[in-house]
């Protein structure tokens, strides 16, 4: 490598570091909501969403369910929010590692946010929301959509948990490269990754605190499920908000899908 190529890299790093993505606030309202559930749950789901949306329609699931029929309804009515019962379409509710084929298909096919509520809805109120970010840190849309259910909202936790095991795997490769100082790489990569989310989150917090919403920032390396578990308890999180699709658009591989399965007692909004 020539001296100038090394310097080019130095300057590119400085300028890339100087770009701090800012939160762009754009309000969304759940004016129209579509509720999908079976005969046992439809009424309580409707009752819940009635508090947030003025115009609700229902789609009742039964044995003669037709996906085409549901898809046509969604396409024609274009709801701002879809509320769907967890594990809808699964005959055996013991199959706990599936959120249900209808929910899985809707999140891949439809562009509108999909809300999944816990089974127990008595006295359920959304006043603490956790927004989980994957690798697209500067995701203003995720925050704006999370604010769809802001009626009784008091507290927002912005969460970025970077998978420590994947990081260790990459560090294992770095350790074997003589030209890279392992300790320097480990410290700097960790710091830079966390700084990226912290910078964006601080901007979001400034805006949301002005709107009287208490905002907490949480950026760390760790084991994803246990970190979220700890945060749910710590901040009494009622609703987790995630991207519905992962970075590479692989079906059902997003952070949101895994954690929707993992935490059945917490509501999830998949955007």
């Amino acid at each position: 490598m020539k001296a100038y190529e090394n310097n080019l890299d130095v300057f590119e790093s400085i300028f890339k570091r100087s770009v701090k993505h800012q939160y762009v606030h754009e309000p969304f309202e759940p004016n129209k909501a579509l509720v999908i559930g079976d005969v046992d749950n439809l009424a309580k789901l409707n009752a819940f969403i009635g508090e947030y949306s003025a115009d609700c329609q229902s789609f009742q699931y039964n044995d003669s369910f037709s996906w085409d029929e549901l898809k046509s309804k969604i396409d024609e009515w274009q709801p701002d929010l879809i509320l769907i019962q967890r594990q809808l379409g699964i005959p055996n509710k013991d199959l706990i590692f599936s959120v249900g084929p209808i929910l899985e298909t809707i999140t891949q096919v439809c562009k509108m946010p999909v809300l999944v509520l816990p089974d127990e809805l008595d006295n359920f109120v959304i006043d603490s929301v956790g927004i989980g970010f994957d690798h697209q840190i500067d995701n203003s849309l995720l925050i704006n959509k999370a604010l769809l259910l802001k009626n009784k909202l008091k507290h927002i936790t912005l969460i970025h948990v970077e998978d420590e095991s994947i990081f260790k795997y990459y560090m294992g490769a770095i350790e074997k490269i003589p030209g890279i100082n392992t300790e320097f790489a480990e410290t700097n990569i960790k710091e830079t990754i966390l700084e990226l989310s912290a910078d964006f989150f601080n901007g979001v917090a400034d805006k949301l605190n002005n709107d009287k919403l208490k905002t907490t920032i949480h950026c760390e390396f760790g084991e994803i499920v246990s970190c979220y578990e700890k945060l749910i308890k710590e901040h009494n999180i009622d609703l987790l908000v995630f991207e519905a699709e992962d970075d590479s658009k692989m079906a059902m591989h997003s952070l949101g899908h895994s954690l929707t399965i993992q935490f059945p007692n917490v509501a999830t909004l998949l955007v």
């Binding site: 100038y4 310097n7 080019l8 300057f11 590119e12 400085i14 300028f15 890339k16 100087s18 770009v19």
Partner: peptide, 18 residues
């Protein structure tokens, strides 16, 4: 010349990309 091109060239890439 080289330092100037390094600074402005790398800034141009980042700003036009942004």
């Amino acid at each position: 010349n080289v330092t100037a091109m390094l600074i402005i060239g790398s800034l141009t890439v980042v700003s036009l990309s942004n």
